[in-house]
């Protein structure tokens, strides 16, 4: 008992050190990586998805663009004339 210093070192290793290290590791994975960096990656994902969502609009067909232009013009003229 006395030779082992009443297991004080073991006691500290099992309590203070263990709580600090395991707690820090939990915060690192669950908060730093998941929440904070997750928000960063979420922002990137948001813009990528937005880009993907509107990508079909660029068809390369002039007829489609022309249709879009006429529709837009129609809306603008309607708004200007009737409102």
């Amino acid at each position: 008992m006395v030779y082992n210093k009443f297991y004080m070192d073991e006691f500290y290793a099992a309590t203070v050190v263990r709580v600090t290290v395991d707690g820090s590791r939990w915060v690192w994975h669950r908060f730093d990586e998941a929440v904070i960096d997750g928000a960063v990656h979420g922002t990137a994902w948001l813009w990528q998805s937005a880009g993907r969502a509107v990508r079909p609009l660029q068809t390369g067909k002039v007829q489609n663009y022309l249709l879009g232009m006429f529709l837009g013009l129609f809306v603008v003229v309607t708004v200007v004339v009737f409102l």
């Binding site: 290290v21 820090s24 915060v27 690192w28």
Partner: peptide, 10 residues
């Protein structure tokens, strides 16, 4: 404190 805690487990 947070930076130090993160350092501890890298």
């Amino acid at each position: 404190v947070y930076g130090a805690a993160m350092s501890l487990v890298q």
